[in-house]
Amino acid sequence: ENVVSAPMPGKVLRVLVRVGDRVRVGQGLLVLEAMKMENEIPSPRDGVVKRILVKEGEIVDTGQPKIELG
């Protein structure tokens, strides 16, 4: 899985990584606000952040790609 998608609709509060960052499985990639709760979205695997496809403040839909890992 190279693309991390939104598990639920919500607002991107914070992006916790930058392009080029090495990430580990379970590491937080971003914080999504859904139903007035903050949810940290974890990396599904070890890898390197290739692209960030969302911006802080953006509203995302379920299944929308957010971060691409290499």
Results as ranks from 00 to 15, higher is better:
Lys11Ile: 11
Ile52Lys: 01
Pro9Tyr: 11
Gln64Thr: 11
Arg22Leu: 12
Asp46Asn: 12
Thr62Cys: 12
Met37Pro: 02
Lys50Asn: 09
Val12Gln: 00
Val49Thr: 01
Ile59Gln: 11
Glu68Ala: 10
Glu58Gly: 05
Arg24Cys: 12
Met8Asp: 00
Val23Glu: 01
Asn39Met: 15
Glu40Cys: 15
Ala34Asp: 06
Ala6Gly: 06
Val12Ser: 00
Gly57Glu: 05
Leu29Val: 07
Pro9Val: 09
Glu68Trp: 13
Arg14Leu: 06
Val54Gly: 02
Met37Ala: 10
Gly10Met: 07
Glu33Lys: 08
Ile52Met: 03
Leu29Gln: 00
Val4Glu: 03
Leu30Pro: 00
Ala6Asp: 04
Glu58Trp: 09
Glu68Asp: 05
Val48Thr: 10
Asn2Gly: 10
Leu13Lys: 09
Glu56Gln: 10
Pro42Asn: 10
Gly20Ser: 05
Met8Pro: 04
Lys36Leu: 12
Asp21Gly: 04
Arg18Trp: 06
Glu1Cys: 15
Gly57Leu: 05
Asn39Pro: 03
Val15Asn: 00
Gly57Met: 05
Arg18Cys: 11
Gly63Met: 08
Glu38Met: 11
Gly70His: 14
Glu56Val: 14
Arg14Val: 06
Val23Thr: 02
Glu56Trp: 07
Gly57Asp: 05
Lys11His: 04
Val3Pro: 06
Pro42Leu: 14
Val49Glu: 01
Lys50Asp: 04
Val31Cys: 06
Arg14Asp: 00
Gly47Lys: 01
Pro42His: 10
Asp61Tyr: 15
Asn39Leu: 15
Pro44Thr: 07
Arg18Ile: 09
Val25Met: 13
Asp46His: 08
Gly20Val: 02
Lys50Glu: 08
Gly28His: 09
Gly10Ala: 07
Gly63Tyr: 08
Asn39Asp: 05
Val25Gly: 07
Lys50Phe: 10
Val3Leu: 13
Ile41Val: 09
Gly26Leu: 05
Ile59Ala: 08
Arg24Met: 11
Glu38Asp: 07
Glu56Asp: 08
Val12Ala: 00
Val49Phe: 00
Lys50Thr: 13
Val49Trp: 00
Lys55Asp: 07
Glu38Asn: 09
Gln64Ser: 08
Glu58Phe: 05
Glu68Asn: 04
Lys36Tyr: 12
Pro65Ile: 11
Gly57His: 05
Glu58Pro: 02
Met35Glu: 12
Asn2Phe: 15
Val12Gly: 00
Ile67Met: 09
Asp21Thr: 07
Arg22Met: 12
Val54Ala: 05
Val25Arg: 14
Pro9Cys: 10
Gly26Arg: 05
Arg22Pro: 10
Asp61Trp: 14
Gln64Trp: 08
Glu58Leu: 04
Gly10Asp: 00
Leu13Ala: 05
Gly70Asp: 14
Leu53Cys: 10
Ser43Met: 02
Met35Leu: 12
Glu56Phe: 06
Val60Cys: 08
Glu68Val: 15
Arg51His: 08
Leu29Ile: 07
Glu40Ser: 09
Ala34Gln: 08
Glu56Met: 09
Thr62Leu: 12
Met8Leu: 09
Leu69Phe: 10
Arg22Lys: 12
Arg18Ser: 11
Val12Asn: 00
Val48Met: 09
Lys66Tyr: 15
Gly47Asn: 01
Gln64Pro: 02
Met37Asn: 09
Val17Ser: 00
Arg18Val: 10
Val19Gln: 07
Glu1Arg: 12
Met35His: 13
Gly47Met: 03
Arg22His: 13
Pro7Tyr: 10
Met8Cys: 12
Asp46Leu: 05
Gln27Met: 09
Asn39Tyr: 15
Pro42Ile: 13
Val60Tyr: 05
Ala6Cys: 12
Thr62Tyr: 12
Ser5Glu: 08
Glu68His: 10
Asn39Thr: 14
Gly70Glu: 15
Pro65Val: 11
Ala34Arg: 09
Asp46Ala: 11
Pro65Cys: 08
Met8Glu: 05
Val23Tyr: 03
Met37Thr: 11
Lys50Leu: 14
Asp21Met: 10
Gly70Ala: 14
Leu69Trp: 06
Ser5Gly: 08
Val19Ala: 07
Val23His: 02
Lys11Met: 09
Val54Lys: 02
Asn39Lys: 13
Val23Ile: 08
Asn2Pro: 07
Gly70Lys: 12
Lys11Gly: 01
Leu29Ala: 01
Pro42Tyr: 12
Val12Leu: 04
Met35Arg: 11
Asp21His: 06
Arg51Ile: 07
Leu29Cys: 06
Gly28Leu: 14
Val54Cys: 07
Glu33Ser: 09
Ile59Pro: 05
Ile59Asp: 10
Glu1Ile: 14
Asn2Asp: 12
Arg51Lys: 12
Ile52His: 01
Val60Thr: 11
Glu38Phe: 10
Gln27Pro: 03
Arg51Ser: 09
Gly10Ser: 04
Ile59Met: 14
Ile59Glu: 11
Val3Lys: 06
Val4Lys: 04
Val54Glu: 01
Lys36Met: 14
Leu13Arg: 05
Glu40Lys: 08
Arg22Val: 13
Gly20Gln: 04
Val48Arg: 08
Ser43Thr: 04
Glu38Pro: 09
Val3Ile: 14
Ala34Asn: 12
Ala34Ser: 13
Val49Gln: 01
Leu53Pro: 00
Ile67Leu: 09
Ser43Tyr: 02
Thr62Ala: 15
Arg22Ala: 11
Gly26Tyr: 07
Thr62His: 09
Gly63Gln: 06
Ile41Ser: 02
Asp61Ala: 14
Val17Met: 02
Asn2Ile: 14
Val4Phe: 06
Gly26His: 06
Lys55Val: 12
Lys36Phe: 13
Val23Ala: 02
Gln64Tyr: 07
Glu58Tyr: 06
Ile41Glu: 02
Arg24Asp: 06
Ile41Cys: 09
Ile41Pro: 02
Glu38Trp: 10
Gln27Ala: 05
Arg24Gly: 08
Val25Glu: 12
Val15Pro: 00
Leu30Thr: 03
Val48Ala: 04
Ile52Asn: 00
Glu40Tyr: 13
Val15Lys: 02
Ile52Thr: 02
Met8Tyr: 15
Arg18Asp: 07
Arg51Glu: 06
Val23Asn: 01
Pro9Gln: 10
Val3Tyr: 14
Leu32Ser: 00
Ser43Asp: 02
Gln64Glu: 06
Met8Arg: 08
Gly57Tyr: 05
Ile52Cys: 04
Leu69Ala: 03
Leu69His: 01
Pro9Asn: 09
Pro9Lys: 13
Val17Ile: 07
Arg51Val: 08
Arg18Thr: 09
Val23Phe: 03
Glu33Arg: 08
Met35Ala: 11
Met35Ile: 07
Ala34Val: 14
Val54Thr: 05
Arg22Ser: 12
Arg22Thr: 12
Asn39Trp: 15
Arg24Thr: 12
Thr62Met: 14
Arg22Cys: 14
Leu32Phe: 12
Ser43Phe: 02
Val54Trp: 03
Val19Met: 06
Gln64Ala: 09
Lys50Ala: 11
Glu56Cys: 08
Leu13Ser: 05
Asp21Lys: 03
Gly70Cys: 15
Leu32Met: 11
Gly28Trp: 10
Val25His: 10
Lys66Asn: 15
Ile41Asp: 01
Val4Ile: 12
Gly70Val: 14
Arg45Gln: 10
Leu30Asn: 00
Asp46Ser: 10
Leu30Arg: 00
Glu33Cys: 15
Lys36Ser: 14
Pro42Glu: 08
Val3Gln: 07
Ser5Lys: 13
Pro9Glu: 07
Lys55Trp: 10
Glu1Gln: 13
Gly70Ser: 13
Glu38Thr: 11
Leu13Glu: 01
Pro7Phe: 10
Ala6Pro: 04
Val15Trp: 07
Ser5Phe: 14
Glu56Ile: 13
Ile59Lys: 09
Gly47His: 03
Met37Glu: 11
Glu33Asp: 07
Val31Pro: 00
Ile59Leu: 13
